[in-house]
């Protein structure tokens, strides 16, 4: 993915000015009020998705893979539903049912939970691997740096999706192998960025001073280097999350990601794809949900990069 390189290069520039000091909540809110419309839109989208993901079971009367009506019911169909305590009520199925007669809206809500949750965990693992590797490579240097960098070079020479397909064939398609395979493949990009920005910090005097006072490796990396490379890493976290999210959605769409009956947006598109040939837009709902979240995150990251890289155009 060449655009990923480009974005990584942009985030690498963000280290140049000294990072802003920690400010109070009021300053953060003030910065937020001045944010461009696109960034505000992105923030609203993200907050909404997190809310839905956390409260999915409260927002819907049905279970994740409960069959509530016939297959492919139309939008707005009404059904009788009996809950756990035996009360019966009429529920309107806002988006109809899917290929197995499960409520589409329920699947969408639970899908937020599974799809975002797994992408988030994967991104965290990728950052742990790549970040630790990158900072170590920059701080220790020498052979460690050489070996780690060459391994990353080779991994990046193979297109990620193809490599993921190969590895999933070998290890089988389970959630664990999916998360690990994507995390390892993605940690290469994090490694490159973390190494590049740390290299700029490692040569500074305060790191030298810490070394001379005899601080250990963990102090130097965690207390001296890490705080100084946070802004580009945070921005990169957003971009990586989008990329991981899209990769997992694509793999699920191909039938190789999360396995049924787990609700997941990628596989929901695939399961209901035949509807599109009748002019029904139901399969576009999960696909649109994916697109909206990535657009939102991208807008926020764009704004964040703009702020931390010292490019102020509001003056």
């Amino acid at each position: 993915m060449s655009d990923q390189d480009n974005i990584t290069a942009q985030t690498a520039d963000a280290v140049a000015p000294p990072p802003p000091r920690k400010r109070g909540v009021r300053d953060a809110l003030r910065a937020l009020a001045k944010a461009p419309l696109s960034a505000k839109f992105g923030l609203v989208v993200i907050v909404f998705y997190v809310f839905v993901a956390v409260f999915a079971p409260v927002l819907t009367p049905f279970g994740e893979s409960e069959i509530v009506a016939a297959e492919y019911e139309l939008w707005g169909t009404e059904v009788e539903h009996t809950d756990a305590e035996g009360r019966t009520q009429t529920v309107t199925l806002m988006f109809g049912t899917d290929n197995l007669g499960r409520d589409m809206l329920t699947r969408l809500l639970y899908g937020a939970r599974n799809t975002i949750g797994i992408a988030f965990v994967t991104t965290c693992i990728a950052f742990l691997l790549g970040g630790v590797g990158g900072i170590l490579a920059a701080t220790v240097g020498g052979w460690t740096d050489q070996i780690l960098s060459r391994i990353v070079d080779i991994l990046m020479a193979i297109p990620a999706l193809i490599f993921a397909l190969l590895l999933l064939t070998i290890f089988g398609t389970s959630v664990l192998s999916l998360v690990l395979v994507i995390a390892v493949l993605d940690s290469t990009r994090v490694f490159r960025l973390a190494r590049a920005v740390s290299l700029n910090v490692v040569v500074m005097d305060f790191v030298e001073a810490a070394r001379l006072r005899g601080e250990g490796l963990s102090w130097i990396t965690l207390r001296e280097i890490l705080p100084n490379i946070m802004p580009p890493l945070v921005a990169e976290f957003g971009l990586r999350f989008c990329f991981v999210f899209l990769t997992i959605a694509s793999l699920s769409f191909l039938g190789l990601g999360l396995q049924p009956p787990t609700a997941d947006w990628g596989s929901m598109v695939r399961d209901n794809a035949t509807l599109i040939t009748y002019g029904d837009i139901t399969p576009l709902l999960p696909a649109g949900a994916i697109a909206l979240l990535t657009v939102g995150v991208n807008f926020v990251v764009d704004w964040f990069l703009h702020k931390t890289s010292g490019l102020r155009d509001e003056q």
Partner: peptide, 29 residues
Amino acid sequence: TLSSISFPEFFIAYILILWLSVNWGWFPS
């Protein structure tokens, strides 16, 4: 462009199918 970079490929594909092949019938799906 910022939006279309962040769309999954299958989203674009199905939108095109819906418009160009199902609704208007210009191309086979």
